[in-house]
């Protein structure tokens, strides 16, 4: 079976400043992959590049959540499926939440401990709660591939385990960028190390040696 994501000799530069150098990468259907590396290594850029390469049907969890603060939790989660319905249905759902959508979204919010925030405006939520809304939206999209840029950075440690487990359980192919290496190693089989825009390693988590990581994060 061919890989669902493939990147060949990809380079990206901003204002002529190179941020990604010559990256070649393949991810198979059903794989769970994590990108690690110090900040500025190019994780976000690579993640976006991968997202662009697969097209808009995938889901993406943004580092800044990209929520619409004036809308409720329910509506922000519903946005994940905005392209499945016509504007009329979407508009009606905005005015009066459709029962079908409420019933579909409620279990997700229960899993993410957000059920009591259902009608609350997102701007009223804490950072961790907002991040979980962004996760819920990506899961509700029901996409084959889900990308996440630091999807648990603001969630408290007790819950981040649960959120990551849920993400793995509910998605087919998952690619995350994380700065918390321990958490990453704990949850993922395949780890890709980035440093200065280059791939430092691409290995199974059991094979990633401490030395590799120390080297990665050495200043």
């Amino acid at each position: 079976m061919p890989p669902v994501i493939r990147l060949q000799n990809a380079s990206v530069s901003y204002d002529r400043l190179p941020v990604l150098h010559d990256i070649t990468l393949e991810i198979e259907d059903g794989e769970k992959v994590v990108l690690v590396g110090p900040s500025g290594a190019g994780k976000t850029t690579l993640l976006r590049k991968l997202f662009e390469s697969v097209g808009a049907s995938a889901a993406f969890i943004h580092q800044d959540y990209a929520l619409v603060p004036q809308l409720s939790t329910f509506h922000n989660v519903y946005m994940g499926r905005l392209d499945r319905h016509g504007a009329l249905y979407n508009g009606l759902n905005l005015a009066i939440p459709r029962r079908r959508e409420v019933e579909a979204i409620t279990p997700l919010l229960v899993e993410l401990n957000l059920e009591d925030k259902f009608h609350e405006r997102v701007s009223e939520l804490s950072g961790g709660q907002q991040q979980r809304v962004a996760v819920a939206r990506a899961l509700y999209r029901d996409a084959d591939i889900v990308f996440g840029d630091e999807p648990v950075s603001a969630v408290d440690p007790r819950q981040s385990d649960a959120v990551l487990t849920l993400l793995k359980q509910e998605t087919r192919t998952l690619v995350l960028a994380m700065h918390d290496v321990d958490l990453a190693l704990e949850h993922f089989d395949r780890v890709i190390g980035l440093r200065n825009g280059r791939m430092a390693f691409d290995a199974s988590s059991t094979h990633v040696a401490r030395d590799h990581l120390n080297e990665l994060f050495a200043s």
């Binding site: 929520l67 519903y78 946005m79 905005l82 979407n90 508009g91 999209r141």
Partner: peptide
């Protein structure tokens, strides 16, 4: 920035409303 969270393939009117 929040607009990045909306599916790019949703209709223009839907993206506007949400």
């Amino acid at each position: 920035r929040p607009l990045r969270g909306l599916p790019a393939t949703a209709s223009g009117l839907s993206r506007f409303l949400y």
